[in-house]
Amino acid sequence: MHETLYRLSNLVRVSGPVTKLLGPEYQTSLDLIEIDITFKCNLKCYNCDRSCTQAPSDSTMSVEQIRKFIDESIANNKHWSRIRILGGEPTLHPDLEEILRILLDYKEKYSPSTWLELTTNNFGPEVNRKLLKVPRKIYVNNTSKTGRFQKKFEAFNLAPCDNMMYAFTDFTNACWITNDCGMGLNRYGYYQCGAAGSIDRVFGFNIGLKKLPMDQFEFTKQKNNLCNLCGHFARRRFVPRNLCKPVNGEPKSNKWILAYDNYLKQSALNLY
């Protein structure tokens, strides 16, 4: 019996019917969210899964969009376990102080148990100056980057759909990121994870959800269209930093090469 279940669980990666029987291997954590407030970056690491290097942009979320997110959260009685602010490099957002004030107001007046976190590369004097102004009630996740190469970064731009090995894969199974990091939000809407939002930004599918998702099934279309382009899907499971094998260069498969070539020609996505 146990051997049969083990074989079935292995088939979940490639079989639609088995997925319906056992459920997706990874689901989006609906109480966690990563908000990419900007795609600006002063470091531009190789293999960036927000494409800040490959498709640079000065686009940012507006203060009004952050207020909309908070209004939606309160209207839906949403008490987030964790709200993580990142980018790009979030300290480069011109309205960072106002954004953090709005989030702190939500925490203090409505959801005291919510963990507020800002993730930064801590690279350069401008970033350091901005970090000094971050309120103490917001945890600063300092990744302490010193250069463009990051050992733990994966080959984000190797699309599984460009590899025949994944020809029959059910991409709604997603990967550990949507489970451990939760959904993503950027200026184009909500996604099953932050990396998925950056894929839509480059490819221009324009499938960001404009209302706060409350159910797993709302992400199904995104997972079918975005996970098949994501290099994270190849590994699927979390690997500790000390066990990560460094990526040689910045490899890209055909669909990514074409998408980056056409990035500046695509129509603007609808805003959140």
Rank of each mutant, 00 (worst) to 15 (best):
L100D: 12
T220I: 11
Y190F: 15
P90T: 09
R82F: 05
D200L: 06
I199Y: 06
L185D: 04
N157K: 13
N186G: 07
D95R: 08
E34A: 08
N173W: 03
I74R: 01
G197F: 12
R187T: 02
L96W: 05
T220R: 06
I83A: 01
N173M: 03
G87V: 08
A75G: 15
L96H: 01
I138F: 11
L132Q: 15
F156M: 14
D162T: 00
S113V: 02
Y46M: 12
C227H: 06
D162Q: 01
N173G: 05
T4A: 14
I33K: 00
K255D: 09
D170R: 01
G204W: 04
E3P: 08
V134R: 03
C193D: 04
T114K: 00
P135C: 04
N47C: 12
R237E: 12
Q266N: 11
M61S: 13
T28H: 11
P24T: 07
D71M: 02
G208D: 00
Y46R: 10
I177F: 06
H232D: 12
L11W: 03
Y263F: 15
G249F: 00
K245S: 10
D200P: 09
D261I: 02
A259P: 13
N157C: 15
N47S: 07
R101W: 05
M164A: 11
T119C: 15
P24Q: 04
L43Q: 06
L118V: 12
I70V: 07
E154D: 11
F156D: 10
N228P: 04
G208E: 02
R187M: 10
R82N: 14
K78W: 14
S51I: 03
A259T: 01
W115Y: 10
K211A: 14
Q266L: 14
G204H: 00
P112W: 02
A195Q: 04
K20C: 07
P17A: 03
T38Y: 05
R67Y: 01
N10K: 11
M165N: 02
